[in-house]
Design a protein around this nucleic acid. Structure first.
Lengths: 139, 139
DNA sequence: GTATCTGCAAAACATTTGCAATTCT
DNA sequence: AGAATTGCAAATGTTTTGCAGATAC
């Protein structure tokens, strides 16, 4: 489960990131959405409130979050990067028909094997592709 | 395990794909490599023998393979698509330092849960990121 | 002979980079 | 003032599209 974060500014500091206004707002957005947003989605959601915001800053900030491991880059979409502030183990199910992405539970003990011998696993990703229940019935 | 394919032309036909020369050669390449090649890699490997080959054809052909489910699109690389003709369940481990991708075994029973209720799972992908044994020792 | 497939060139995007302006302490 | 951050504009790189010529049945 996602750790309860009361103070984003403190959390960023702990993670080695200087808490600028833009960084706080972007992390706040990422933390409160379940949508695995793209850079464009984040930009469009925040630019009405932060009119000077640029996409470059969104790119820079997300790269910073990923490097400092407080967000995951979800590679489920081929053409564009998606981000998730929930770095706990869970699966993503992508419907090939309606394109929606659903989260689902993965038990930690279902992935016992830690990877090749002597290596250090930092992120575990599980994703499925198929037809979601809605699209499956229509067909 | 990957099904033993004796006759690529027949296999493409069975899969609903007209076996053109380019398609046969591209599938043959994909089947015999373990490298999860990019479009560019495939193109460069084949163009010396098929001088008229174009990248557009490689793109078209790989999209066709993915649609007809005889190849997987591996979304482990952010910037470029990689392809795999081995559609059996196995994991990909990507080293964040040397960028290499290693295959590893995933037991089917490690992913018991088939996905969200009522849905049809077509592909299961498991990938880890971290440091491979070589890069882990150096640090 | 008609459908399909191929491949060139151009277009469309996502992302990165260079650099100047701004902000923070 | 000095260092880091931001944001614009241009560059880069991958993938798609339009369309004409080639190929196959």
């Amino acid at each position: 489960m996602l750790r309860k974060i009361e103070n984003i500014s403190e959390y960023l500091k702990e993670s080695g990131i200087k808490p600028s206004y833009q960084r706080i707002r972007i992390f706040e957005y990422l933390m409160h959405t379940k949508e695995h947003p793209t850079v464009d989605t984040i930009y469009r959601a925040l630019v009405p409130e932060i009119p000077t915001l640029s996409k470059t800053t969104v790119y820079n900030t997300l790269n910073l979050f990923v490097e400092n491991r407080i967000a995951y880059l979800i590679s489920i979409e081929e053409n564009e990067a998606r981000y998730d502030a929930d770095t706990s183990l869970h699966g993503h199910f992508k419907c090939v028909s309606c394109q929606k992405v659903f989260d689902f539970d993965v038990e930690a003990d279902q992935l016992r094997y830690g990877g090749p011998e002597g290596s250090e696993v930092r992120e575990k990703h599980v994703y499925y592709k198929g037809l979601c229940s809605g699209c499956n019935q229509v067909q």
